[in-house]
Write a protein that binds this DNA or RNA. Sequence first.
DNA 1: AATTATTAATGGAGAAAATCGATTAATGAA
DNA 2: TTCATTAATCGATTTTCTCCATTAATAATT
Lengths: 300, 300
Amino acid sequence: MNLPTLRQLHYLVTVVELCHFGQAAERCFVTQSTLSTAIQELEGLLGAQLLERTKRKVIPTKLGIDLANKARDIISMTERLVLDAQVDRKPLSGVLKLGVIPTISPFLLPKVLPGVRSTFQDLELYLLEDQTQNLLERLSAGELDCAILALPFDLGGLEQQVFWQEDFLVAFPAGHPLSEGGPIASKALPDSELLLLEKGHCLRDHALAVCHMKAVANRASFQGTSLYTLVQMVAGGQGITFLPEMAVNDEFLAQNQIAVRPLSEKGPHRELTLVWRASYHRKADLALLADCMQGLLEKG
Amino acid sequence: MNLPTLRQLHYLVTVVELCHFGQAAERCFVTQSTLSTAIQELEGLLGAQLLERTKRKVIPTKLGIDLANKARDIISMTERLVLDAQVDRKPLSGVLKLGVIPTISPFLLPKVLPGVRSTFQDLELYLLEDQTQNLLERLSAGELDCAILALPFDLGGLEQQVFWQEDFLVAFPAGHPLSEGGPIASKALPDSELLLLEKGHCLRDHALAVCHMKAVANRASFQGTSLYTLVQMVAGGQGITFLPEMAVNDEFLAQNQIAVRPLSEKGPHRELTLVWRASYHRKADLALLADCMQGLLEKG
DNA sequence: AATTATTAATGGAGAAAATCGATTAATGAA
DNA sequence: TTCATTAATCGATTTTCTCCATTAATAATT
């Protein structure tokens, strides 16, 4: 369908209001001829007479008045649309879809979410827990706005801001021969006892990377599905594993019968980072979010 | 305020729907570059990002989706406006403001209005009774759509369609010396007994014109304010007067004790006509109305 | 790793439109 | 009659819109 332009509608509204082409033209900041032509085109387009005019008088027709009223509505809706677009959005307000990997989620979120929520009152946070690769796909597809992942991993074209870093600790069953002492070198660990998370968890790869071990050294049947179950296996004496500091400080894990020793390999062993698409339009907001989380973690 | 064009909004709606510039362009029957430019201008105008795009993907922002929804509403309102304008209006439907002079109104309307109303079911007729000059002013001002008047009078620039014509009769008190007989010449009438309507009624002028009398021949104190009161004065023996055929056939007047004789001056003495502004946009409707009234009067 | 295909942005040329200024014709008023 | 007002009209100009061709970036495929 061929639509009139908003400009034509605006002209109509003004002429109907003033019943005078010259004055209406002045109010619209155009010449009378412009207005005259525009109205004629509008009438032509609609196939109906909107104004009855003599050289002396302008009388809107019933239809002209009706349409001018509708036109007023249309124009004011459009004005509102413009205003809506220009609402000075508070930073980090509205919906934000955040993905988090499972080896970070249960330890980080309880620490930072209350603080984040109180800092950004108008933030509506939607959380999705999944493994790195899946999160990256969803992020690329636009289903997520950002994700919290652990470096190192292949960023692709994504941008990021690291907000935390931590070491790994080795967890032994209570009473294990190696369970006592200070920093221990990964070389000193018995490969055959190592328990890891199942494939897909980046923590698995990171742990192996730290101690230069090969994944093949582990028994598939003992791959854990979460850090909680993994710790319970360690506590049950079925093997040893690596844990990020964050997990060790967690209350739940602390209740289990395990002993932890730091690694003598120094490092930060894993970096927590907030990532987003390079084309994302609210980068500034996300930087604020990363800053906020960092601040909360540093305060303890 | 600077408003976006409906075209820009339409482009936005399409791109948000398809998430693909090329496809959206195709659907809009323009090239991709046209669409691309238009969206960029829209974003510039609104001062906000509506779409997040890489070379590979297009992801609408929250704002983009919101505004596209609003835009859809605006566009469909505009489409409805166009449809409203093109509604094939039945002839003589809707409001019609009709003026009628007092010497026609009480005799004509009861005869024709029922028929008019049943012929044009959707007609909303607003009636105004006043003297010719006042009706003409209101007609010119656009307060009336048309008027029923009696010729002859100065039409000015108005257009008209005559739908009836009638003679005048002379009315005498029952028992008046001249009350019996056939056609009578106006010259034979006693000037001093002539009663007329007050000034402003065209019937007064028409009556005087028929018999070439001067208005000054009449006593001001006996000028009637309506044909009903005038007839009662005649019945009371206070004088004679002219009546249009229409009034003579009226039931109310027939009950009064008066006698009527035709004038020997032949010819239609007054013509009933429907008048409208030359610029009026529903002339065709009014011609139908005049035709209709004529038909009803001819049937009796 | 190199090649190919896809896609949005960009630049320049041409077409379409909107607007203006000047004039005309009609209308009322003085 | 003459004058003032006003909407329509015409031609010229400016602005906007659109297209085509090309580019740069990105994935997918070889």
